[in-house]
């Protein structure tokens, strides 16, 4: 199970990607990761209504893959649910994450 976070828009318009694969986590941490993903309920809840139009707003795409794509959700900094923000902070704190800039 792999989570991919893309953050773009913003004043730069540069897209930063963060990936975290549950397979590379120690089993107890993988369980926490799964719990955080479930708590964010992204699979159940659809994209919030588009709130584009805010200049330089941060745009988010969060995707979860298992054997195939499970879901892909889109948010802005305005519409990012608090539980998803918590999940992102958790992912950003994992040393196993892979970060890159998309060109």
């Amino acid at each position: 199970m792999k989570l991919t976070v893309r953050r773009g828009g913003g004043i730069a318009g540069i897209v930063a990607r963060t990936e975290l694969d549950a397979n590379v986590l120690p089993p107890p941490d993988a369980a926490v990761f799964t719990a955080e993903i479930n708590r964010a309920r992204m699979r159940e809840l659809p994209d919030p209504p588009a709130t584009s139009g805010r200049p330089d707003a941060q745009l988010y795409e969060i995707s979860l893959e298992e054997t195939g794509l499970l879901f892909s959700r889109h948010y802005t900094d305005d519409s990012l649910p608090e539980d998803v923000r918590t999940l992102l902070a958790w992912v950003d704190g994992r040393p196993e994450r892979i970060e890159s800039i998309e060109q």
Partner: peptide, 11 residues
């Protein structure tokens, strides 16, 4: 709303 598309390339 895809971050890669930048609101239709505004930047």
């Amino acid at each position: 709303n895809d971050p890669r598309n930048d609101n239709g390339g505004v930047h």
